[in-house]
C-alpha cells in the first residue's frame, strides 16, 4: 500500500506503476459528463473557486445533503470513466492534471496523454459509495450546482486515505488493455473447445 498527498508532483506520478494500491490524501475535484463537455468547449471555472491546474479530477456524481448550512457527502463512488474518453486527454493536457480517478478504465487517447503529460488513472471501487464517502472529510465548495445539477457539479473535496488502484500509469501501461487482451484470447480458446 502506497500513500500519496495531493497535489502530486510529476516525479511522484512517474513512480507509480499499474497494479499499485494507493491511498490518496488532499484536495480533489469531482467532474463528470456535463463538466467534461463544458470544459472541452473552452469554458473555464473561475480560478479562485476551482483551480484545476496540476489537480486531480474524480469522475463522481456524489449524493450531497445540506445539513445546518453545511454540505455533507453521503455517497460518493466513481462513475464509469469511458464516457469522458473523448474529452479527457485534452483536459489532462490543458490543466496538466496529475490524476484522474474513476472506474472501468479509459482508452488509448487517455493512456497516451497520461504517458505524455505525467498523469495516472486511478481506479476506485465502483459502487463502494459509503467507504469512499467516509474518506471525504470536508466539502470545501461547489461550482455549477445550478448549471449542472448536484451530481454533475464540480465539488471541491478534502479526502483522507481514499483507496484506489493504479490501472493506467505514466509509462504507457494500461491494466485495462492487458485484461481485455487476455480475456479475449481466453474467450477464443473457450469457443474453440465448444465446437461440436
Amino acid at each position: 500500500m502506497k500513500t500519496l498527498t495531493a497535489p502530486f508532483t510529476e516525479e511522484q506520478v512517474r513512480q507509480l506503476k499499474v497494479g499499485d494500491m494507493v491511498e490518496i490524501t488532499g484536495l480533489i475535484y469531482t467532474g463528470r459528463d456535463a463538466v467534461h463537455k463544458w470544459l472541452s468547449e473552452g469554458n473555464e471555472p473561475p480560478k479562485n473557486e476551482v483551480d484545476l491546474n496540476n489537480s486531480i479530477i474524480y469522475h463522481c456524481g456524489p449524493v450531497v445533503m445540506k445539513k445546518k448550512n453545511a454540505w455533507t457527502v453521503t455517497a460518493a463512488g466513481p462513475t464509469t470513466s469511458i464516457r469522458e474518453e473523448p474529452y479527457q486527454a485534452g483536459i489532462i493536457e490543458k490543466y496538466k492534471l496529475k490524476g484522474v480517478i474513476g472506474k472501468g478504465g479509459m482508452g488509448e487517447k487517455t493512456r497516451i496523454a497520461c504517458q505524455k503529460f505525467g498523469c495516472v488513472y486511478l481506479h476506485a471501487i465502483g459502487g463502494a459509495a459509503q467507504v469512499l464517502a467516509e474518506k471525504i472529510v470536508r466539502v470545501e465548495g461547489v461550482y455549477g450546482y445550478e448549471k449542472f445539477g448536484s451530481p454533475e457539479a464540480i465539488w471541491k473535496l478534502q479526502v483522507v486515505k481514499l483507496p484506489v488502484v493504479v490501472t493506467i500509469d505514466a509509462h504507457g501501461n494500461s491494466l485495462h488493455a492487458e485484461i481485455e487482451k487476455q480475456s479475449s484470447a481466453e474467450l477464443q480458446t473457450l469457443f474453440a473447445g465448444m465446437k461440436k
Binding site: T74, A75, G77, G127, A128, A129, Q130, V131
Partner: peptide, 19 residues
Amino acid sequence: IICDNIGIAKVKSQPLCQD
C-alpha cells in the same frame, strides 16, 4: 472494500452506491 461498504451502508442507512 465491497464487503466493508455493505456493512457501512446498512449501519448508516445510506445508499450502498451513489448511483
